[in-house]
Each structure stands twice: as C-alpha cells, then as structure tokens.
Amino acid sequence: MKNPPFNYHRPATVAEALDLLAKHGDDAKVLAGGQSLLPVMALRLGQPEHLIDISAIDELKAISVNDGVTIGAMVRHAEAEKSAEVKQHAPLVAAALPHVGHRAIRNRGTVVGSIAHADAAAEMPAVCLATEATMTIASTDGARTVAAADFFEGFFSTALAPHELLSHVHFPAANATTGTAVVEVSRRHGDYAMCGLACSIDAGGGTISSAALAFFGVAGTAVRVADAEASLIGKPPTADAFAAAADIVKATLDPSDDIHATAAYRKHIAATLTRRGLAEATSTIGVPA
C-alpha cells in the first residue's frame, strides 16, 4: 500500500494552480487535505499523473463573513470547527463537523475537499444542499458559481471539470428563527454514516415557514426530500408534523443494500432521523451559538 509515482506540483498561488490545471487537466488531481485522495492512491485505485497540492496557497486558507460564511479550499475541518464565525453564521456546518471522522482526520482534511470529493455518505455535501450553498469554481477561463443543487451529479461526481478548482464555498446566513441539526447513524463512532440527515427548520411565530431535509448515505448523492419539506410548511413544529414528514421520507427514498445496512434499514432510520433531527433542530431555535 504505497503511493504510485506522480509528478508533484505545489503552487504558491491560485493563478499558478489554475495554470497547472489548465495544462494537465485530465491527468491531474487537486490534493487538498489528502484524507480521501491519499488512501485511494495508496490502494492504487487512483493514479493521477500530476498531483497539484494546493496546501501552500495562502489565499485559500480564509474563512470570511459575508451574508453568511465563505470557506476557502484550504480551510481544514478542525479550523472551521473552532471558528466562531462558522458557528454563528453557518450553524449547520458547525453541527456537521464533529461527525466528520476523528480529530486527526479533521486536522488535515478540508471542508471544501469533502464537498469536491462528493462522497454520498459524507456530511458536507448534504449540508450544502440543505443550506443552498454556492460553489465558486475557478479556472483559467475565469470564475463561475454553481448552486449546490446543480453541483452534485452522482456517485463521486460533480459539476467540476478536470481543469477546474473549487476555490470557495459560500454558506448563506441562517436567520434567527431557524434551527439546525445534523443527526446520523453510523456503525462505529466516527464512521461514515449508514444514513444521516442535515436539516434546518424555520418556525418563527409558531408555524413552520421553511424546512430543509438533506439526507446522506441513502443514494448516489446527498438528496433533499421536497415533499416531506413541503408537508411541514404552515404546521406547528410538533411531533405529529415531524412523524408525517418522516412517513413521506420513508416512502420517497430509494436507498440500496451494502454490507453495512439493507435498504429497508436505511429507510427506517431515515424516518427515525427525520423525527429526531427536526425535534433537535427545533430545540436550537433562538439558542445563541
């Protein structure tokens, strides 16, 4: 289990990185925290000819507040976890982070890397869907933005072209009457979830005005269940309303079997998590971060 050979590049600026990507595109991979890419390479399941290590690019290391929070591509999970700005302006991101692997993994892995990697069982893509985050994608052609809903295309596949860099992700601000929660069931503590839910609920004035339910581990990508969300609107945030939404979730999702869980099990816990997640999210409304 040793890495295959590669041409190694460590650009110091985004511009250099984009030039390298433009030049090597199809044969290159971006290396951010390496916590997903390096094991894949050591197992020799992936053998990029060029590795473009973005870890030395200072421009990508910032967390900035701008009607929400923008997280740069080299912000490590642990830095985001410690950030007061993230906690305040992107509470769902903050809620998700403790679930991502273990501390040593979070010390190296990046939030944006996790999004670019697009593992269907990972927390961060679901958080992007639930918060309707915006991806900033850079290349020598210029920058473009893509809504989270259009970004995740399938199993480990995204709207990123080979020559593009996901430079930042913007998570819009949550308003004061919104509660959030990330709940999941994994085999062992710290494992990727068999099923998880990133959810938010706005229940200002005692009725639900908006809700987001983004599941992970149950399909090729993270998925929102629009019918279940719609069923909540206009209702008070009660166990009955949550249970009704859970029933819709169960009827809608179409997960598959693997060695850790059957489809039937995943549906069942998706419903359980809907009830638990919404209750937990509701309990956080108005609680200062």
Binding site: G34, Q35, L38, A42, D53, A78, H102, A104, N107, R108
Partner: peptide, 21 residues
C-alpha cells in the same frame, strides 16, 4: 491511528500525509 504524530502540535495521521507536507 497507530501512525498518529503531532504536526505543529496537532494530531495527524502520518500515513495520510506526504513527506513533503
């Protein structure tokens, strides 16, 4: 986790870092 070391004080997996890191 057997390879865990401290890099700039923070626990990190030495197997999931390149030497050049």
């Amino acid at each position: 986790g057997a390879c865990t070391i401290l890099v700039d004080g923070e626990p990190s997996r030495a197997c999931l870092m390149l030497g050049v890191h």
